[in-house]
Amino acid sequence: MATAQLLLRRAFASSPSCSPLRRSPLDSARFLPRAAMASSAAAPFQKVQIQREDTTFDAYVVGKENAPGIVVLQEWWGVDYEIKNHADKISQIGEGYRALIPDLYRGKVALDAAEAQHLMDGLDWQGAIKDIQASVKWLKANGSPKVGVTGYCMGGALSIATGVLVPEVDAVVAFYGTPSSELADTSKAQAPIQAHFGELDNFVGFSDVTAAKSLEEKLKSSGVPHEVHIYTGCSHAFMNASPEALKRRKEMGSTDENQGAIDLAWSRFSAWMARFL
């Protein structure tokens, strides 16, 4: 297993709120086709296909054409209702953005934490970086003058990695995730990076307060514009506020609900992307 995946696996497995991860999903994994997944996002998404090297993958686009673009990266669940909710909201912020979700799992969405673990374990992280780079280039080739990247949990770690590894990225906003040093050395970041973490996040080494402060120190040495925000009383995935997501968070042991923190994070997101895009 790649080190980046191992770091995240250990972080989840060590969390008392994530005990379902301790069972193996390999013999009984069930994956829900995206078409069957209920979506809370009302806006229509356009399905496009993006080519990178000898691989083609699906992506989902929402928002007005020729607006600045933002690549929106999934949590470990896959392209589900909540990442679509985030992309839909992003597309309507300020004067509007063109939000694009690349399907890093190639059509699979997890039903529970064990399946999500299985999908994440199988992810080619270097390949995912290439998918993201191709997505950024697609947006720029299709009318977006500048493009940012944002992501949540696994997607948060990947978004920061693209700020290091993908020169075409103009700005990054990451939520509760940091890449391993083997995937990306954040002291060598090229793009402006804003990052958000919950004070009570207990995914040690990945998105806890110690990981957040370590990221901040490395970004200082990089010299790029950066902000690292820690939200009092919030745990992992605190931005997920739909009824379905709240139910899922409670099943995994996170009972906090803080609309004030969510609104503040979105305000900071909006200001950061407006500044650089």
Rank of each mutant, 00 (worst) to 15 (best):
F276V: 14
S207H: 00
F276A: 08
A41I: 13
G177K: 03
I193D: 03
H118R: 13
T3R: 14
G122T: 05
A171L: 08
D121A: 12
A29P: 12
G156S: 11
L165D: 09
L104T: 11
T55L: 12
T186E: 10
G148F: 06
V71E: 10
Q51I: 12
Q117D: 15
F203P: 12
Q190A: 11
E199I: 02
K247M: 04
Q46A: 05
G155R: 05
I129Q: 00
G78H: 04
A211S: 08
P225V: 02
W138R: 06
A11R: 08
P102I: 08
A191P: 08
K247W: 04
K250L: 06
N258A: 00
D112G: 10
F12I: 13
S207F: 14
Y60T: 03
A35Q: 10
D201K: 05
D263G: 07
L26A: 11
L200P: 06
S180P: 06
E257G: 07
D256V: 10
H229A: 05
V173G: 12
W272D: 08
A110Q: 03
E244C: 05
E257W: 10
I70L: 02
R34T: 11
N66H: 14
V224T: 15
A110S: 13
I101C: 04
E65Y: 10
K47F: 06
E216P: 11
D201P: 12
G122C: 12
P33T: 01
K146M: 06
R34Y: 04
E115D: 07
S24Q: 03
E216T: 08
G151P: 03
L104H: 03
A189L: 03
Q194I: 07
P16L: 00
H226E: 07
V149D: 06
Q51N: 09
D256L: 04
S24N: 01
F45L: 04
Q126R: 11
G198K: 04
P102D: 14
V204D: 01
D256H: 00
L123W: 11
P192L: 04
A141S: 13
Q133E: 13
